[in-house]
């Protein structure tokens, strides 16, 4: 299992949420491929030195979000069906969270609506130059 998750236990973000984010990101960018097996709850808990029930909770939520599926006795796997959709959904989940966070930050600094929109436009132009034309 090549995917490496990094957990910041000292962050204010609950560890299971961090783990969900990390798995979704890995799926979105293709580090975790459809059908690929995830480490067992125990293995991941030991690797990351975090509570096993926290890992189990993250896996349950990932299953609910249809990112992974668990075959009893065989372990948890990245879902195979509609991989692209899963990945995109996963990606967009992560992106929405990041965008929300960024916009809230911008707002708290005191930027107004049009200033924030301009910032977003600049960022989009930078990363999607061809589509813009």
């Amino acid at each position: 299992m090549p995917a490496v998750f990094t957990i910041d236990a000292r962050s204010g973000v609950p560890i299971y949420l961090q783990l969900i984010d990390q798995v979704k990101r890995s799926v979105a960018i293709g580090v975790l491929e459809p059908g690929e097996q995830l480490p067992t709850v125990k293995q991941l808990a030991l690797d990351l030195t975090i509570n096993p029930n926290t890992v189990a909770r993250a896996y349950r939520d990932l299953e609910r979000d249809e990112v992974i599926e668990t075959a009893s006795g065989r372990g948890s796997f990245v879902r195979g069906n509609g991989t692209a959709m899963t990945a995109r959904k996963a990606l967009s989940d992560v992106a929405v969270d990041s965008l929300t966070h960024a916009i809230r930050e911008a707002k708290s600094i005191g930027l107004n609506r049009s200033e924030v929109l301009a910032l977003v436009q600049t960022a989009v132009d930078r990363w999607f130059p061809k589509e813009e034309q």
Partner: peptide, 9 residues
């Protein structure tokens, strides 16, 4: 910590 986690698992 790993002993605790292992036992918990």
């Amino acid at each position: 910590l790993k002993l605790i986690i292992d036992a918990s698992a």
